[in-house]
Write a protein that binds this DNA or RNA. Sequence first.
DNA 1: TATGCACCTTCCCATCATGGGAAGGTCAAG
DNA 2: CTTGACCTTCCCATGATGGGAAGGTGCATA
Lengths: 138, 138
Amino acid sequence: MQIGEASSATGVSTKMIRHYESIGLIPAAGRRSSNYRDYGAEDVHRLGFIRRGRDLGFSIEDIRGLLRLWADRRRSSRDVKALTEAHIAELDAKIALLGEMRTTLAHLAHCCDGDSRPDCPIIESLAGDAPLHPHHAH
Amino acid sequence: MQIGEASSATGVSTKMIRHYESIGLIPAAGRRSSNYRDYGAEDVHRLGFIRRGRDLGFSIEDIRGLLRLWADRRRSSRDVKALTEAHIAELDAKIALLGEMRTTLAHLAHCCDGDSRPDCPIIESLAGDAPLHPHHAH
DNA sequence: TATGCACCTTCCCATCATGGGAAGGTCAAG
DNA sequence: CTTGACCTTCCCATGATGGGAAGGTGCATA
C-alpha cells in the first residue's frame, strides 16, 4: 500500500503522514525498490488512531502519549483518563473564552443600528469610548 | 513616550507594537534623535483599539478593516455590524466544534473506570474498536 | 516502443500571532 | 565612568497544515 492509499484510507493527508514520520510520531515506513513508502494494516490502524485523536482536538504531543499508552498492555486506564480530562479542561477554557467574546460581541451588535450613519457602539467600544458592558436599556 | 511606556499603557507588548508597524497596521512611529520610537496620545489610543479588538478575537486583518472604519467619518455602522456578525458566526462555528469534542470526550471519560487496569473505552474509541457514541447504558 | 499521466520523492516556503534571544546603541543615576 | 534599564535590528521558534517546485517511478494506451 503506498502513501496515497494509506492517506485516502485514513483521511490523513500524504503531507501529514510524511510529517508524522519526520517528527517520530510514527515509525519510518518501509520502502519498496522504487523508494516509495510502503504501508501495511498496522500502519493504517495507527494513522486512523492519530486522525481520530486530532478530530477530538488532542495535540500531537498528547497523541504521542496516547499512542504509547495504546501500545502498553500494562497501562492504567487512569493515565488515559487523566490525559483526557486535562484535555477536556483545556477545551472548557477555550470554550469559555470564545463564549465571553461572543456574548460581548452579540451585545454590541444588538445595540448597533446597522444603518448608513456612522454612530456605532461597536467602534466606540473598541475605541475605549464606551465600556464593553454598558447598562443600556435595550 | 517611548515604546515601553506605550506598551504598559496599552497591554500590547513592545514586540507586537513593532510588528504592527512592520505590517502597516499602524503608521511608522516618529523617532527621537536617539532613534528610539516616540508615541503620542493618538498612537496609544490606536494601540488600545487594537488590543481590545484582539481581546474580542478579531484577526489582524479584521482589525485593519475596523481601524479604517474607525477613521472614516462617513462610515456606515452597517459595515461595522456586518464585520462583527461575520466574526460572531466564526466564533459560533469554533464553539460548536469544540463543544462536540468536549461532549464526546466527556462521554468517553465517563465510561472509563480510571483504575489500574488497561481496559479503556477512550483508547478503544481512538483505535477504532468502538464507535465514538456507543449506546451503552450508563 | 514511446509517450503521457498519475503517482511518488525531497526540499523550501507560507500561514497566524506571538515570543525568545543575540549583538549592540542610548541614557540617567550613582 | 560604570551600571543597569531601556532601546535598536535581525534571526529563529512555535503548531499543524498546505503549496509548490524539481525530479524519479510505474502503468496503460496510441
